[in-house]
Computed example of a mutant assay.
Amino acid sequence: MGRRAAVTLDGLELAHRRTGAVGLGGAPPVPFAGAAEVVGWFGALQSQDYHPAKWAVAQRLGPGVTDVDLDRAFDDGVILRTHVLRPTWHFVAPADLRWLLELTAPRVHVLNAYAYRRGELDGPLLRRTTDLIADAVAGANHLTRTEIAALLARHGILAERFRLGYILIHAELERVICSGPLRGRRHTYALLDERVPRAASLEREAALAELVRRFFTSHGPATAKDLAWWSSLTLADIATGLSLAGDALENTDVDGVTYWSAPGDAPAPAGHPSVRLLQAYDEYIVGYRQSKHLLDLGGLLVAAPDKLALPNGVIVVDTQVAGRWRRTVRAGAVVLEAVLYRPFGAAETAALHAAADELGVFLGARAVVSVSLL
């Protein structure tokens, strides 16, 4: 396919190259000027939990970015939050939302089919609820989930908890609604046409090529099965996208597995340990299935897989999982409880405290660190 194969790599070098691609290995592959550029680099960035997901964006933007800054960007529609790729929330840049939904929504509907049946949500009912919601939020009349549930109840439609969730997901996948600005701490829904500029559609093959290129550039080295998990696309679609991507991607085989990435050298090692406090749904953690083992080349998690059941997030030293952490915000302080899977040396301990201080700046609070060993 006209691509040159990279030199043979071992697992640690693959992981090192990957941290650079995901924007965690020192200087990012491209300088990110703002939240939309971070999200656009990935195509979509998982935001299952809104507040930790903002921290994932801030970590790629560098020191000084605050939680308030990202709330403002979200309220202004610089980044949006909706269901795309998989049955979960993602941050998406407005410029990408329409073509991503056109490409992936049919697959997500298939994945949601059992949930639709369980909620007795057939096609006519879902079309009716979507139309009612669209009319209600038109004219920048942004509504919360509770208000939408009350609206539907007035029309004789039961919409609570699970059922309401899938009514809203359907409307999002149909490109009718997306996130609106926050109202205090509550999320709202807005009419997508009022929130996202009109844009020309991409032909399906062009969209496939772009999503495949975007994933392997921002997540590589990674495998086709990793992308199938991340995007819900079939392996046949991914093969088509790879054939269309041309020289934008290169591949290498390691232990009989083919990894794809953008051409280029890995970032130079920092020369000192780097500690990252990643949210549990950071792209470095959830963006992979087949090659997720690259996070744990030393096998720290093999004996106790429940360690991945994290309350807040993952501690990563350089490229490898080394612990878990939880934050508690109190008056004027953020208390960071770090549970380590192995003892840290002096340099790693200093880097952990520096990472906690970055989190404190983000939250506008003094960081207090508590460390224990599992």
Score class of each variant (00 low, 15 high):
147 E>A: 15
132 L>Q: 04
131 D>N: 10
165 G>Q: 04
60 R>C: 14
132 L>R: 09
65 V>A: 11
142 H>T: 14
108 V>H: 09
179 S>Q: 08
181 P>H: 11
69 D>V: 03
113 A>P: 04
176 V>I: 13
108 V>T: 10
140 A>T: 13
55 W>R: 02
129 T>P: 03
172 E>M: 14
113 A>F: 08
85 L>I: 05
66 T>L: 10
151 L>S: 08
89 W>M: 02
165 G>M: 03
167 I>M: 13
141 N>F: 02
169 I>Q: 15
102 E>I: 05
178 C>H: 02
129 T>N: 04
100 L>Y: 07
121 L>K: 03
168 L>M: 05
80 L>Q: 06
144 T>A: 09
128 R>G: 04
163 R>E: 05
74 F>R: 04
56 A>F: 03
71 D>R: 14
96 D>S: 05
112 N>C: 13
149 A>K: 02
60 R>I: 14
162 F>W: 11
106 P>C: 08
116 Y>D: 06
59 Q>R: 15
178 C>T: 15
86 R>L: 03
81 R>Y: 05
102 E>H: 12
169 I>K: 13
161 R>K: 14
139 G>Y: 14
164 L>S: 04
89 W>F: 12
95 A>H: 10
159 A>I: 05
153 A>T: 12
78 V>H: 09
98 R>G: 09
151 L>G: 07
160 E>N: 06
178 C>R: 02
65 V>D: 07
101 L>H: 07
133 I>H: 00
67 D>G: 01
134 A>C: 11
101 L>F: 00
150 A>D: 15
94 P>K: 08
177 I>F: 07
138 A>H: 14
65 V>F: 08
136 A>H: 11
114 Y>G: 10
54 K>R: 15
54 K>C: 05
166 Y>M: 04
165 G>V: 00
55 W>G: 02
96 D>K: 01
100 L>K: 03
63 P>G: 12
104 T>I: 08
91 F>D: 00
162 F>S: 13
123 G>T: 14
63 P>N: 12
99 W>T: 00
156 G>V: 05
145 R>F: 01
123 G>V: 12
154 R>S: 11
142 H>A: 13
171 A>L: 04
171 A>C: 03
121 L>A: 03
62 G>T: 10
117 R>H: 10
169 I>R: 12
165 G>I: 00
69 D>P: 03
182 L>I: 03
84 V>D: 00
139 G>I: 12
163 R>N: 06
164 L>H: 04
75 D>R: 13
91 F>E: 00
151 L>H: 08
179 S>M: 08
144 T>C: 10
63 P>S: 12
86 R>Y: 01
98 R>Q: 10
136 A>S: 15
92 V>L: 11
70 L>M: 07
80 L>D: 04
162 F>A: 12
114 Y>E: 13
55 W>L: 06
176 V>C: 03
57 V>C: 11
108 V>F: 10
155 H>F: 07
179 S>L: 09
58 A>M: 12
79 I>M: 11
